[in-house]
Design a binder for these strands. Sequence first.
DNA 1: TTCATTTCTTAAACTACATTAAGTTTTTTG
DNA 2: CAAAAAACTTAATGTAGTTTAAGAAATGAA
Lengths: 189, 189
Amino acid sequence: MYSALYNHINKFIDLSTGEQEILASMLKSFSVKKKAFLLTEGQTCRANYFVVKGCLRLYFIDIKGAEQTTQFAIENWWITDLTSFLFQNPSEFYIQAAEATEVIAIEQHHYDEMFLKLPKLERYFRLILQKNHQASQRRIKFLYSQTAEERYRHFNSLFPEFVQRVPQYMLASYLGFTPEFLSKIRAKK
Amino acid sequence: MYSALYNHINKFIDLSTGEQEILASMLKSFSVKKKAFLLTEGQTCRANYFVVKGCLRLYFIDIKGAEQTTQFAIENWWITDLTSFLFQNPSEFYIQAAEATEVIAIEQHHYDEMFLKLPKLERYFRLILQKNHQASQRRIKFLYSQTAEERYRHFNSLFPEFVQRVPQYMLASYLGFTPEFLSKIRAKK
DNA sequence: TTCATTTCTTAAACTACATTAAGTTTTTTG
DNA sequence: CAAAAAACTTAATGTAGTTTAAGAAATGAA
């Protein structure tokens, strides 16, 4: 049922079968159709989502009405609007499936309970959050260090398969420019 | 000696006097003069730094030779180049004191040991990293949602005292524009 | 308290990227 | 598989922010 998550957890800590069962009682697993939403603006973010298969994205709508993608999550990544999730207040973000996606969710009312019942998971989530923090530091450096064109070429060389996987307008907003400009860059060469 | 850190930790978990002593054996505390470096490009980041008093900044030098500030840390914040710290490989960043600063440091060779000896601290650092992740999500949204001028005015209204505290050229690079443009904005009104 | 260094300001010329708008291609859906 | 919707392209025009360069002000050191 939740083996994708158990496998991931076991890369970082050892979770016994008994502990897996306790964890299972606090999880949900389900499919999300392409373009369906797990969160929309104004809603409270109910869960922290682990992607088993597929791709989710986190975005918001800016003042001009344009979608700004701030994060993607593919297989074995967690994604949520952390502030809305932790404090159960209204979100300014959307979480949408960029592809048909299978997720495992831990809802907020189980989140604290999980750490009480399975304190081992403190370590797992600390390590996951460290990876997230590394990713954020890399991301910020990336955004500050290059022009839009360089950012696209660099991203494309690092993750060519991912670039193929999502629509260009999502990628353009993730990289911080317009779809029109992305077209222009691609036409160049 | 380390009371600023103990106080901070005790906001999140309960650490006994005995546990504080164990922790103390893995910490160092020292002063950093204004403009002095805790890390420079090419060096391996030795420690994770907790600011007791003062202000540190994390920055890198971009292709054009300009300093790009990616993070500030004031009282009660941790700062490090996480990738270089965790994997002990050469950093592309500098960590510099923006003011005379007192820090508490945990060096890499004590970091894993700390979690073995004091597993309670898994929770503390998980919660700290959650706060960091919230801050990153806010930061990215902020960078993507507004023009340079709006970013400055917004930041200035949120943290007026901090804006006074650091040189404008550091702030400009943190907000993603040039010092000249910041001057222009400020002259406007 | 003076000299040197660092930081900040001003302004003109420039450019990377946005905007707008129309047309084309691809994907989705009944 | 046809029609509609979504995604992508092209190109002209516009602009927010950069670059360069020089001078002014503030800060720090001796």
